[in-house]
Design a binder for these strands. Structure first.
Length: 336
DNA sequence: AATCCGTGGTC
DNA sequence: TGACCAAGGAT
C-alpha cells in the first residue's frame, strides 16, 4: 500500500478518507487517480468541486468527497498549506473524525494516540472479553481508554497499524484464524470458544415501514416524468418517479393527491408492480406499488405545474440518470 | 441518541 | 441468497 511507508500527511489523509468504510482493494485505484490528478493539497484545493466528485464517482459516501475538497481549502487557506500536526487540531477539519485524526496524528507525526476503528473494537473485545455494545456511543470512550493504556509510546504508529492489520488479516469478523494465533493463550474469546460472540454489537434494528405509491406517468410523446429526490431522505439526489407516500397501504381510489386523482380519472391505470424493498443501510422496509398511466397533454400541464421538480425524459435519457436500484429494476422490467 | 450515507465482498 | 459487514463522519 503506497501510503504505508510515508509520513506525508497529505498522502496519509487522502488514503484514510478513501478507506473510511471502504476496503483497500476498492479504494486503491481511487487513491492512485487522486494522487495523479492532485499531487499536492494545494492543487486539490484549487480544483473544481465537480472535478473532485467526478474522480470520486462509484466509491460511495459522496459527502466524503465534498468534505475532502473543503478540508483541502481550509488547510491551504488557513494553515499555510500544512496539515495540523496533532490530534486535537486535526479533529476540527471537515471529514476528519476521531479515527482519522488519530490515524494522521500517529502515522504522520508520531503522536501517542490510539486509533479506534472496527478492527480495534473486535480485537480488544475478543482479547479481553468486553461485553460493551459497540453500537452505542459510550463504547468508544471505553475502548479508547483501553487502547491508550496498551499503545506503545515509543512507536504509536506501528502499534496502530499493527492492531488494525491484525484485525483485518487475522482476527477477522468471520472465521478468525485462531488456530495459529499468537494470542491464543491470553485471548478470552478463544479460551471460552466465544469468538462469534465478540464484539457485542446490537443494532437496534427498529425496522421502519413506509408505503410508496409510485406513478410512472407517460406523456403523449411517451416520455417519463422523473425527479431528483430531495434532501433529508433516502436516495438523496437520485432520480425516481412521482410518488405518494402514506403510512397505510392505500387503495387505488383512496389516494389523496388531487392531481393524481385527476390524471387517474382521465386515463387508464395499470398496476404493474407490487413488492417489498429492503433498504438495508437504514433498516427501512418499503412497501411499493407501481402504477402506469398515460396522461393527456392538458392534464399533464396542470399536474406538472404544481410539481416544478418533475421533468419529462425520454426512455433513452433515463438510462443516464442516477436512479435508485428499485427504480432501475422497474424500468428494466417494464422494458423502457 | 438516532439517523443518514454507498458500493462491494463474504458466507 | 439474504444478512451482515467494511481503516467513519456529519447532522
Amino acid at each position: 500500500m503506497p501510503w504505508r511507508h510515508t509520513r506525508d500527511p497529505y498522502h496519509i489523509w487522502l488514503s484514510e478518507i478513501i478507506l473510511q468504510q471502504t476496503r483497500v482493494q476498492q479504494g486503491l485505484p481511487y487513491y492512485q487517480r487522486f494522487i495523479a490528478a492532485f499531487p499536492t493539497v494545494r492543487i486539490l484545493s484549487e480544483a473544481k468541486e465537480e472535478e473532485v466528485l467526478r474522480l470520486w464517482q462509484g466509491l460511495g459516501y459522496y459527502s466524503r468527497a465534498r468534505n475532502l475538497h473543503a478540508c483541502a481549502k481550509t488547510v491551504v487557506q488557513e494553515h499555510n498549506g500544512r496539515f495540523p500536526d496533532n490530534f486535537k487540531d486535526l479533529l476540527k477539519l471537515k471529514g476528519i473524525g476521531r479515527y482519522t485524526a488519530a490515524a494522521i496524528a500517529s502515522f504522520a507525526f508520531g503522536e501517542v494516540v490510539p486509533v479506534v476503528d472496527g478492527n480495534v473494537y473486535r480485537v480488544l473485545a475478543r482479547l479481553f472479553g468486553i461485553t460493551t455494545n459497540i453500537a452505542q456511543p459510550p463504547a468508544f470512550n471505553e475502548f479508547f481508554a483501553l487502547a491508550s493504556e496498551l499503545i506503545d509510546p515509543e512507536q504509536p504508529d506501528t502499534f496502530n497499524q499493527a492492531i488494525m492489520e491484525f484485525g483485518a488479516m487475522h482476527c477477522t469478523p468471520q472465521k478468525p484464524l485462531c488456530l495459529y494465533c499468537p494470542l491464543q493463550a491470553v485471548c478470552y474469546a478463544y479460551q471460552h470458544s466465544m469468538q462469534k460472540d465478540f464484539p457485542v454489537k446490537k443494532k437496534a434494528t427498529k425496522v421502519k415501514h413506509r408505503y410508496f405509491h409510485y406513478f410512472i406517468i407517460l406523456n403523449p410523446a411517451g416520455e417519463i416524468l422523473m425527479r431528483p429526490r430531495p434532501a433529508g431522505d433516502i436516495w438523496r439526489g437520485l432520480y425516481d418517479f412521482y410518488l405518494v407516500e402514506d403510512n397505510t397501504l392505500l387503495d387505488t381510489d383512496a389516494i389523496k393527491d388531487e392531481g393524481i386523482q385527476q390524471l387517474m380519472a382521465k386515463n387508464s391505470i395499470l398496476v404493474e408492480e407490487s413488492e417489498v424493498y429492503k433498504h438495508q443501510l437504514t433498516h427501512q422496509l418499503l412497501h411499493v406499488k407501481f402504477f402506469v398511466l398515460q396522461a393527456s397533454e392538458q392534464a399533464l400541464q396542470t399536474f406538472t405545474a404544481e410539481r416544478s421538480q418533475l421533468q419529462a425524459f425520454n426512455p433513452a435519457e433515463t438510462l443516464a440518470l442516477p436512479k435508485p436500484v428499485l427504480i432501475k429494476n422497474v424500468l428494466e422490467k417494464l422494458n423502457f
